[in-house]
Amino acid sequence: MAILLPLMLMLVFVFILGGAMDVSDAANASETRNAYLSYVLPAIALTTAGFGASYTAVVVSNDMTTGFMNRLRTMPFPSITVLLGHTVSSMARNLLATAVVVASAFALGFRTDSSALELVAAVGLIALWILVITVVFATLGMVAGSAESASGYGFILLFLPYVSSGFAPVESMPGWLQGFAQHQPMTPIIDASRALLNGDPVGSSWWIGTIWCAGFFAIAIWLIAVIFPRRVAR
């Protein structure tokens, strides 16, 4: 699943929509497709990683609502280390998915003239987003009543990137959507990673994206610190 989803998205967007999505002033369909590939690349990476990270809500909720966390709480080590373990495994899983996305983009003809440093920065930004989403979903999993309801939250993450600059330029959307699309957290992160991946100037989007991430991260950690010790399964 973690490997299949990015591949499917990649193929759908590049081959089915790519020829019709004119995000540059390309001369023919094949050039249009290639231009769109470099345009959607960060959105596909963030969508799959975000969706993969949302699975953390399910595993955390499972631990919280079965007797597992209760048993850990009666063992002589801090039970919060289990949340840390889930975060690490989410990072590992989703960075792998990101690598698959980037590798398949190259296979489909993606080329870039950005420096190694810029590529590392792009991956770093994507990794930061994965971390934040993982922690946010760990928080949701902690308060969800059951693993089933926790899995429902992953859905939100599938839609958020479509209402951003990820798949189509914000200017092409109807006016009432533009406000949200321009100011939601994924847009600056996608803009910044796109610029970094394509060797374009990054502008202010990278730090706006980073502030969003830092904000979400801080709130989620604070909620975990407050709620986790009190949340004992009945």
Binding site: N62, T65, G67, N70, R71, T74, P76
Partner: peptide, 18 residues
Amino acid sequence: KKRIQGLISLTGQYAAVD
């Protein structure tokens, strides 16, 4: 608390296995 936790175990009403 920690010393007690090293000497006991709890098996709750709902299974703690994965």
